[in-house]
Each structure stands twice: as structure tokens, then as C-alpha cells.
């Protein structure tokens, strides 16, 4: 599924589309453009979304980068016409309306802005599908078998991220239904695993504290190893790296970890990549704890998997 946004050269958003996995496309229109089309058979629903562009700058040729700065934001509202609970779309096959798209289906009428609840049965189905897709991987399966039974799962609209692991309550939170994906789940599961593996847990290394960078990088490496091993071209550890050459070298390092396992030689390079991550990552840099050797959970999860 993809979102397609079209802007004019002044930066105003002209139109948007959702491309569905089955090849159909749902368009959405500026909310004031169909106000005269409603009748007793139809109703108009409005949904707003925010489109942001963030920027980081380097003043030294790409060695160091500034923290991300929000340089552009648009909040656009669009409408769909609904008739007999079916969305009117340009080529789409219908469904629960655009608000249902936002909520993953089945939630018409609920506000997508404010919620905090344990996952609904339909969301638990999605969650279990994501879990099952991960469980066939040796390392991810080992993580799941160790943490799954003790975890709680909640939806919380106030998150500023796709997912979050709350160590205090042993809860994985998702921002919305669309964030219940194997990608988000994998990283948060690994944070849960880190919390069980390290003797003092990971609360002392939470956001903004010394060691946060170490904990996050370990999770990124675990994620990247999973994605590489399972044929996905998806990388988290390289974000912010200043050029393609360095990114390629990181990807090659991950692929060797997949092929040969975490050998002493390969793990000997870990801190070099951690330091680069700490220098360049727009979100997680700056909280490196030199004394924290946070590779134990990674090595434990990978043990026996090569």
C-alpha cells in the first residue's frame, strides 16, 4: 500500500491517492469540493492528515549533522462520500470508507485523534499475523518465545512514534492500527528482550539518557539483520550516514553477520558503526555511553541461529 501526494510548484497539495495492494486506487479530494454532492443516500466524511518535511544540515561536508528541523508542514483535510457504508472511490473496490482506512477497518465513527486502549480483537488478529510472520525467523522467534507471554499491547494516539515499548508496564504501544506491522513489532519486541536480558533492564537508558544511543543501535542492528536475512531491502542503522559508500559498507557488514554469524572479527567492528550512528543519526545521536557494552542481547538472540 502506498500513499501518493501531488503538490504544485508552490507547495500546495493538489490531490492524493492510496494505492492498494490489489492494484486499486482510492483518491481523496479537497473537502470543500464535494460539499454539494451529498444527498439522503450519501454522507460526507472528512479526514485530515499532516504532511511534514524535516531537514538536517551539515556544515562540515557531511561529517556531522544538525538535529532535524521541521521546515514545512501542511495539514490537509479531505472528504469521501459514503453510500451504504461503501466508499466512493476512483477505481477502488469499496470498503469501509476512508476513516476506516485510517483505523485499519471496522472503526467507523471513532475519532482517530484520541484513544488509549488495549488492542481490539481485530487488531489482535493483525498483531498475531505480524508475530507469526516474525516467528519463523530463528532469532526473532527466540525473542518472541522469551517475551511474548508477559507483554501487554495497547493503542495510544499520543505516541509521537510508530511504536513504543514501555518498560515500566511491559507494554508495547502502537500509534494507530496501520502501525501494527512486523517492522514496528520487531523493534519493540527486541526492546522488550533487551529489558529482560540486561540485569537492570533498560529503563535507565530511556530516551534522552546516557546509553539510549547504545540501546537503540543494538535494536537497529537486530532489525537490519532480520531484514537482510529475510530478503527485505530495509535498513534502519544507516539513517543519517553521510554517503552511499558508508551505507554500503554498513549493509555489507550486516550481510556478513547474516552469512557468518557474529564472529569476533565482525563484532570487532560494532563500535565503529555505533560511533557513526551516534554521530549521524538525526534522532538517536548524542546519548552514547562509552562504558555500556550493549551487544549482549543481540548476541544472545542470534546464538544458535547460524
Amino acid at each position: 500500500m502506498s500513499t501518493i501526494i501531488v503538490q504544485d510548484l508552490k507547495g500546495d497539495i493538489l490531490k492524493g491517492y492510496i494505492s492498494n495492494p490489489d492494484g486499486t486506487v482510492m483518491g481523496f479530494m479537497p473537502s470543500n469540493s464535494i460539499s454539494d454532492k451529498t444527498d439522503s443516500q450519501t454522507s460526507k466524511s472528512t479526514v485530515c492528515f499532516t504532511f511534514e518535511i524535516w531537514q538536517t544540515k551539515s556544515s562540515d561536508g557531511g561529517t556531522t549533522w544538525s538535529s532535524p528541523e521541521l521546515i514545512s508542514t501542511h495539514t490537509e483535510c479531505y472528504s469521501t462520500l459514503t453510500r451504504n457504508s461503501m466508499a466512493i472511490s476512483d477505481g477502488g473496490s469499496g470498503g469501509g470508507g476512508y476513516e476506516d482506512y485510517l483505523n485499519g477497518g471496522g472503526n467507523s465513527g471513532s475519532s482517530p485523534q484520541n484513544y488509549n486502549y488495549s488492542l481490539k480483537p481485530s487488531e489482535m488478529v493483525t498483531l498475531n499475523e505480524a508475530k507469526n510472520s516474525l516467528a519463523s525467523d530463528c532469532a526473532a522467534g527466540m525473542v518472541i518465545s522469551n517475551v511474548w507471554g508477559s507483554l501487554n499491547f495497547r493503542m495510544n494516539s499520543t505516541l509521537t512514534t510508530n511504536g513504543s515499548f514501555d518498560a515500566a508496564s511491559n507494554t508495547i504501544l502502537f500509534r494507530n492500527t496501520n502501525n501494527i506491522t512486523f517492522k514496528t513489532l520487531l523493534e519493540e519486541l527486541f526492546h522488550a528482550y533487551q529489558h529482560t536480558y540486561y540485569p537492570s533492564g533498560i529503563r535507565t537508558f530511556s530516551k534522552g539518557k546516557s546509553g539510549w544511543t547504545n540501546i537503540e543501535f543494538e535494536a537497529k542492528v537486530f532489525y537490519d539483520i532480520y531484514m537482510s536475512r529475510n530478503g527485505f531491502n530495509s535498513w534502519l542503522g544507516t539513517w543519517g550516514f553521510p554517503n552511499e559508500d558508508i551505507k554500503k559498507k554498513y549493509r555489507d557488514w550486516i550481510k556478513k553477520l547474516v552469512d557468518y554469524g557474529p564472529t569476533a572479527e565482525l563484532m570487532g567492528q560494532y563500535n565503529n558503526w555505533l560511533n557513526l550512528f551516534n554521530t549521524h543519526h538525526p534522532h538517536y545521536k548524542g546519548y552514547l555511553n562509552d562504558k555500556l557494552n550493549a551487544t549482549g542481547a543481540l548476541l544472545d538472540a542470534l546464538s544458535g541461529c547460524n
Partner: peptide, 16 residues
Amino acid sequence: PEGKNPVMESCQKSGF
């Protein structure tokens, strides 16, 4: 692109 078919470098932010 979204969620289930990752094809490119991502900046997945974790709330932890």
C-alpha cells in the same frame, strides 16, 4: 510506500 512491504531505507523511530 508503507508498512508491510519495506523496500527502502527507513527512519523508524522507536518510542523507547
